[in-house]
Amino acid sequence: MTYLRLAGVSVGALLAANAALAQGYPERQITMVVPFAAGGPTDTVARLVAEKMGTELGTQIIIENLGGAGGTLGAAQVAEAEADGYTVLLHHIGMATSETLYRNLAYDTLNAFEYVGLVTEVPMTVLARKDFEPADMASFVEYVKANGDSLTLANAGIGAASHLCGMLLMQALEVPLVTVPYKGTGPAMTDLLGGQVDIMCDQTTNTTKQIQGGTVKAYAVTTPERLELFPDLPTVAEAGIPEAEVSIWHGIYTPKGTPAEVNEALSASLQKALADPAIVQAFADLGTTPSPAEDATPAALKEKLETEIARWKPVIEAAGVYAD
């Protein structure tokens, strides 16, 4: 601390630090690792909940964007971090799929982390360019089945939400579409708007405004029930392909060995944050809803991760695409 004082730290910061020391966890600021670039949908979710969780815990949660290799770099970093509760990870469905997509992962997904809870499950929408022929989901299914290999399917790169949903869609419809990968959602969406590609399936985070603006044609949602936001869009189950049900779920993890009380404290603050009207509204703008309190728990996240790893393994292996 002598050095700190030499470094000219402000008196206010010192007082704040001392005040925090008096209580138990958390004693200092918490770093939330987001394994994707700043500005993306996952980063947005993280920044929204981190602020409220920090307020609940009486500390500051700062976001560290540690992107790269489909989120596995950030996850690996957290897996190796000290299990003291001051480094947490907010990751999405990729936590489960990278277990199969990457054949030489630096960590063992199921044994390297403790669980805090689910944050949100973002629905996905099946889209096509705005002058795509079929009028509704029923004729879409028929049309795609009939013209399969002459249609193009855009995705935002291996492991991206649009890639996962696309794989499911092709397997459910039993047609191989011509897959066109892009580097990120932006360019993929641009080409869909420009009519350069035919079909894409992506999170409502990216698609809601485009659907409302009429720049793309929406056919279905991938949730078990219809969305309040788009009551006219049928679910994939209604269209006879329940196998294509998928959502981009987000969870918060801590390194293995983090004390259970710490995870409980984080989980409690997460539940409070998710019940905050401002968060509910912000999530609604993105076309999603916060996870209910019973899902924002360590047990629910653990179960989700286990079932999802088991679910995606055969899907990815059948598609034969690996990211390594």
Binding site: T44, G186, Q212, G213, T215, A282
Partner: peptide
């Protein structure tokens, strides 16, 4: 749609402000 990484950051900022950028 963001044209470059800087614009992607702007989108993030807009969303956090409750404005989801889109054609409208």
């Amino acid at each position: 749609i963001p044209a470059n990484p800087v614009m992607a950051l702007m989108v993030g900022a807009m969303i956090i402000q409750g404005i989801v950028p889109g054609p409208n």
